[in-house]
Design a protein around this nucleic acid. Structure first.
Lengths: 349, 349
DNA sequence: TACATCAATGTAAGCGCTTACATTGGCAAT
DNA sequence: ATTGCCAATGTAAGCGCTTACATTGATGTA
């Protein structure tokens, strides 16, 4: 008699139901391959024993875990939260479990996490952006773990991506800024090292300046890590430049919020004295005062699409296809006409 | 000759290094049990083969995964983010990997996630609060997976907890509110069903009223799910009550932010026309206008302590000990004296 | 020199599952 | 009554690792 306290195994269930272990396995994984009566009996045994399959064993034998991993740069601040939530919901609908790990924006930690998730049997991986060592892509390929990049779109990446065109989006926003009469533009960029999103946003800004006969070399840029306070600091420095910028474009809403806070501390009215723009359209952007004019990113849609695509890659072993989602400018109050006392720009749309 | 494209196994390494598989396993798990020269040879083989251990196999054989799971109610909004980040950092320091899953505040999903994580071999689990079916605690016990509750403190729980006293914290805040002269108090509470934190905060508020000779039965309470917009809606309803509350205490900063936004839309000045308080002291609370007076929770400290405690439980198989962290009121501008035109309360500390 | 000791390594038995293949037996067609 | 077929089930070989136990040979001791 087996120890009743011990965790029951497939074998215990089989014994109790008077069938072979294969049959139990079948009622678990392919119920229609076993006749109703037996199935019933096995189910009862499972119930009374309180049996739960041992995953490690299943993985070893079958190689599939029904789990998808996601490695995001940060859990603090909500950029990835909404998209990830949608990603998870869709996965859940398809029977997959999502496990997420965070890399704290550190490439070596991301590598570790990728390996950890693959080692733990993830069937597929969601990564953010494209910037990482070739070696890790090799690793993924060798282990045949499909991966998908999100929050960025690039046809050139080593893996397909579901995202938006960061450069184009920033280009568009910058054009609007210029149309409002701003020429003294400054930018607080996210850290561009190892972060294609940040780099492309900066590029978009420069390209737009060029396209409108402003010299991109004159664009003051301060890079700041993803923290409100860093945005504030950068803003303070920028305000000391001469000529003083009439608009500070930020690489994301978090930095923009910091900039806004600093403006307030400096006694500057936004957008009367200086305009500020964000990027991402996270919740923060709605609640600051004034609310941020920013680039809206379809987070939920991106998450859902990514889930469907990744599951498809896993199931069909197809290479996957990239999709590019549209973004649009979300007009609120932090961007104004240059020199216009106190009015924020109307939504031209 | 083995297929060079295939993933190398321990056996391949052993063959290449001319040792037994046991020796390879030893250099991986107990390097000092094998002599330097051999160790070197094995390491080289590992290197040239690009070998990575198969986790599932390791788990099956050894039962330890060096991974800790955390199931949080939501990844949207940042309440758990900061604490979790600290949790993860400490785990990483100790050689553990953190995998997180979100339950979307749904008990049945939480159950699923717990099982999923346990099945995937988590050595320990971090859960939020104490409210869940007894059955799931049984399951954890049967599988001998230590679990720790965070964001809540209770000596009575089935598992130890690292957190703070939600009721006491709210009690203290309410006392301050009352001291400022408020008697027409209202509350926007988080959903209390299955959420001890929300329930205890509500209780704390009522207890404080009682302690100060206000009838807690007269406290208007609206429960709202964790979304800014829901806070706004609830606030609007509350403002239609008569007598109109002079202060709206919110179960968390997110709801408070919604309330603030609504007040603004209604053309009410905070705290002149109405005071609003939050709870959690997440970043949001600093950036609203006016900034929120709220209860500060030591998120990072809690995360770090939880990690150390949980790892200890895993390693020593001890039952674990609960710890209660202090909170304090973070005075900002959204709470004012009743009837005082336009002044927010000074920090009495 | 013979023997006990011990560090270094090898042998092989699992861990709990899946699945290719083998077996069984009932039924329709002959 | 045979035969053949097929659905239902059983048998058993792994999956890649860890680890208790066995083996080996060098060293120290009497």
């Amino acid at each position: 008699m087996p120890n009743p306290k011990a965790i029951p195994t497939l074998g215990d269930v089989a014994k109790m139901a008077g069938v072979s272990s294969a049959t139990v396995s079948r009622v678990l994984n392919a119920p229609d391959r076993v006749v109703e009566a037996t199935r019933q009996r096995v189910r009862e045994a499972i119930e009374t024993l309180g049996y739960t399959p041992n995953f490690a064993a299943r993985v070893m034998a079958a190689k599939s875990t029904m789990t998808i991993g996601a490695i995001i740069p940060t859990m603090e601040n909500a950029i990835f939260a909404r998209g990830l939530q949608a990603f998870q919901e869709e996965l859940h609908r398809q029977g997959y479990t999502l496990l997420v790990a965070s890399s704290a924006y550190r490439p070596e930690i991301e590598n570790e996490q990728i390996r950890a998730l693959v080692a733990r049997g993830a069937d597929g991986l969601l990564l953010i952006g494209h910037d990482r060592e070739a070696e890790i892509y090799d690793y993924l390929a060798r282990h045949k773990v499909p991966a998908l990049a999100a929050w960025s779109h690039s046809e050139a990446g080593q893996i397909p991506s579901i995202g938006f065109d960061n450069a184009q989006a920033m280009f568009n926003l910058t054009e609007e800024v210029i149309k409002l009469g701003h020429t003294k533009i400054a930018m607080i960029s996210g850290v561009t090292q190892g972060n294609d999103r940040a780099r492309l946003r900066l590029r978009g800004c420069r390209d737009a300046m060029e396209a409108h006969c402003l010299d991109p070399a004159t664009l003051p840029v301060i890079e700041a890590a993803y923290e409100i306070e860093n945005g504030a600091e950068a803003f303070a420095k920028l305000m000391a430049y001469s000529p003083r910028p009439s608009v500070v474009m930020c690489g994301n809403d978090v930095l923009a919020t910091g900039a806004l806070l600093c403006a307030q501390r400096l006694g500057m009215a936004v957008p009367r004295d200086v305009s500020i723009t964000g990027f991402d359209d996270i919740e923060l952007a709605r609640v600051t005062n004034p609310a941020l004019t920013t680039v809206h990113v379809p987070h939920r849609e991106m998450g859902g699409k990514a889930a469907r695509e990744l599951v498809d890659m896993v199931k069909t072993k197809s290479p996957g296809v990239s999709v590019r989602l549209p973004t649009h400018i979300k007009w609120r109050q932090s961007l104004g006409l240059v020199g216009d006392p106190g009015k924020s720009a109307p939504d031209p749309a």
